[in-house]
Amino acid sequence: MTYTAKKCGVRFTPPAIVLIYEDAVTQKARKRIMPVRSFSKFSDCSKAAERLKNNVRHSAYLQDVSMRQMERLHVILRDRLLGRTLEQSLASLRLDPNEDLNKLGDEELSRKKARMDQLFEQNRKKKDDPDFVYDVQVDFPQDERLETCSWDEEESDGGF
């Protein structure tokens, strides 16, 4: 039997991961609530996520859901136990290009870095890749650039 994950979310009390999936045989959308047990504000979210993903009763349904996403859902559950609002925890998991990351604490910063690492890993050329080149050189001719970066535009007061 195969299941296609459509959506997932959380339930706060009692803590659970909620999955909307489609059953390949019946082609019907179903909801599955998977309780997150023995979970506290001190729990390690990545371990808890792994535990649920490998759970014998749930693993078949969670095939399509990435570890990263499972971990994020657990982070939201834990944030709740730490007294944070849903908005706060979603903001900490989102990348805001205008946010000054210098001002964040260790944990908040590592959440942002984890988010950035997704793109990094996606675009990454690894040493073992068949087309890996150590010294990649691409020339970007300076004078051919027509467009002025909009980041410079509001600098009329001579910021730089």
């Binding site: 990094f120 890993e121 675009n123 050329k125 990649v136 970007f140």
Partner: peptide, 12 residues
Amino acid sequence: FVSAADGTNVVK
């Protein structure tokens, strides 16, 4: 202009 992910111009 560089990319640590794909390596563009990093060694240079």
